[in-house]
């Protein structure tokens, strides 16, 4: 067989494989959207769920998903940022940093159900936080931290060494160089990383089943006192998220329209994550443009 035919076969195979991946993705997306989009309505997106009757919505779950996402990000972003700055800007390559990096890698490959069970034993039971948004947010932090740290570290890596030298040569201290030159320059790419990881957190179910719980008590959206049990802001209430809701109605849902609710919820979830991804690209590009060219 001559090299030309070989080449053709190789390219053909690669095209085939790539096409297959795209096809599977499109089929999945198509199925979810085709079966889910017809269920969507303002009522569906805002009404609370019903346990036995038809006509329930996912309003509370949707809100819980966002609230939990924001809390988890508020906790994990500062830690990830600090860790990434330390690892990339300060730490020298020695056994300590190697150990930290290995630990981060192992943590990132941990199955999320294990993170969930750990969260259950530690936050829910040991620290007596109960099934609560707070327990869920901590569990999600464990789940999110490794990837976020890695992505911020990668963002810092894209900033050229000459920028650091430029800062130092102006008589800026190392800390000033990092906070005033490197971080602003890395903001677009850090932001992209944050939004992409937000998408992952938003769709996470296994880590939340045993921590944030599987029930969504009705919320009173007029009560913004975080100490009241029905307040949307209360971090100590159990909070089923959209992803957990999908899992739950598929395994034990007894409402007559369980299938429709599940399809609708899936569509909402997929749309939200698509939105995160597009937002990440758009914002990242725009910020980069604004910061770098006229």
């Amino acid at each position: 067989m001559n090299s030309k035919t070989q080449n053709k076969i190789a390219i053909g195979t690669l095209y085939g494989v790539a096409g297959l991946v795209v096809l599977i993705l499109l089929a999945l997306l198509g199925y979810i959207l085709v079966s889910g989009l017809p269920q969507l309505s303002w009522h569906f997106l805002t009404a609370p769920a019903k346990a036995f009757l038809k006509g329930g919505g996912v309003g509370v779950q949707l809100y819980n998903s966002f609230y939990l996402l924001i809390l988890a990000m508020l906790i994990s972003f500062p830690i990830a940022l600090g860790a990434a700055i330390y690892l990339y800007e300060y730490a020298r390559d020695n056994w300590v940093t190697t150990t930290i990096r290995t630990a981060i890698e192992i943590l990132s490959s941990l199955p999320s159900v294990v993170v969930g069970l750990f969260g259950f034993l530690f936050f829910v039971v040991k620290l007596r936080l109960g099934f609560s948004i707070l327990s869920g947010a901590f569990a999600l932090t464990f789940f999110n931290l490794p990837l976020l740290t890695r992505s911020i570290e990668d963002s810092l890596r894209t900033i050229d060494l000459s920028q650091r030298e430029g800062g130092l040569a102006l008589g800026l201290s190392r800390w000033e160089t990092i906070t005033r030159v490197i971080l602003p320059a890395a903001v677009p790419s850090i932001l992209t990383g944050v939004i992409l990881s937000a998408g992952r957190v938003f769709g996470e179910a296994a880590a939340l089943i045993y921590t944030a719980g599987q029930s969504a008590p009705a919320l009173d959206f007029t009560d913004w006192n975080p100490f009241n049990i029905s307040s949307p802001l209360n971090p100590m209430r159990p909070a089923e998220t959209l992803a957990v809701h999908i899992w739950k109605i598929n395994s034990e849902g007894i409402m007559p329209d369980a299938k429709a609710i599940s399809s609708g919820s899936s569509a909402v979830l997929v749309l939200a994550i698509l939105l995160f991804n597009f937002a990440a690209r758009y914002l990242g590009k725009r910020l980069y443009k604004r910061l770098t060219s006229a």
């Binding site: 050229d160 000459s162 920028q163 030298e165 430029g166 800062g167 040569a169 030159v181 602003p184 320059a185 910061l291 770098t292």
Partner: peptide
């Protein structure tokens, strides 16, 4: 430096 290294501002 050898390579011009203005900050991206």
């Amino acid at each position: 430096f050898q390579q011009p290294n203005p900050f991206p501002f």
